[in-house]
Design a protein around this nucleic acid. Structure first.
Lengths: 166, 166
DNA sequence: CGCAGGTACATGATGTGTCATGTACACCCC
DNA sequence: GGGGTGTACATGACACATCATGTACCTGCG
């Protein structure tokens, strides 16, 4: 027999969906307008820019962002066409490919970041007290524990910070 | 000067994005496999099934789900092709269209709902204590207050439950 | 009345995500 | 060291979302 959601769960759940929808649409729109980047572009560029040499294996991008493999392929191909990233063969694994941040890619992320962070602040953190941020973080950590159990990381790399609690 | 995110905000933010990604992908996949419906289909069908007569104006669907108008048009057209909904002219406004749940649509949502609710339980609520659910709900309400201020409803209809606090 | 501006919805082009499948290579183990 | 299994990535077909634009209609106001 189906156990439906309680009133409170229902409200929470629909709220969460609504937040996701609004946040994704709003951030995407602002990012696109201000910098010509999509949110997906942005995430890839951020990840690359955080590596010491501005490069990563394609599968690492997929793991970090939790993208399907074919999404990674397609998206990197599009970004390559636009000159935001380049490809390099991997010397130690001939199947593999490195994705490398180009000068244009680095310029794009550096130009886009301040306005995007500002958007995130406005849309999310400005409305929350520090205590609410902490509570939100805790809830997220708990949900992630659930979800990550269903999608175990294949390579040793940690996927997310493990619960700043403590 | 850009005010970047603090360590805690950064972790929370990336966690939230990760939750969104995993949840959307996971729920979509399970729904699709178990019932042949996308999450968007599901949301539309739920909304229609909750009206007393199984019908709503197209723009109401858009407002409730916070969809772009053209997304509504395109998606309803696809659902109509699949026989999940039908259209009817609006007698009081000849520009307007009613979207009506068909028998097939109602059957589809009733068949899909139990497994979907189960998925939501497994992926979200099973991992949270009641207190965490409450905290999450509170944080969501606060963020929604921010976001909804940016997208005011045009018609009188309430868009979401207004903060069960108190 | 008549028209100016706004609303409801449709449509085509384009970018994006997923699924199924294919190819090449790595690795393990007998 | 050769074959089986799994991994890294690409690709084509299709579903989906968005933007720009178009059409019909409503509404308020002179």
């Amino acid at each position: 027999m189906t156990r439906w959601l309680s009133e409170q769960e229902q409200r929470t759940w629909r709220g969460l969906m609504r937040v996701s929808t609004l946040l994704d649409a709003g951030l995407n729109r602002e990012l696109q307008r201000s910098s010509g980047l999509s949110r997906s572009d942005y995430q890839v560029l951020v990840q690359l820019s955080e590596t010491p040499d501005g490069r990563a294996r394609a599968f690492e991008v997929g793991e970090e962002l939790q993208w399907e493999q074919s999404r990674v392929s397609h998206h990197l191909a599009r970004m390559q066409r636009r000159g935001l990233v380049a490809r390099e063969d991997c010397p130690t694994d001939r199947r593999g490919a490195y994705v490398v941040l180009t000068a244009a890619g680095r310029a794009a992320i550096e130009k886009a970041a301040p306005a995007h962070v500002e958007s995130v602040r406005r849309m999310v953190f400005d409305g929350l007290t520090p205590e609410q941020v902490a509570n939100l973080g805790e809830a997220i950590t708990a949900v992630l524990a659930q979800l990550d159990a269903r999608v175990p990381p294949r390579h040793g790399r940690a996927t997310a910070a493990p619960a700043s609690r403590g």
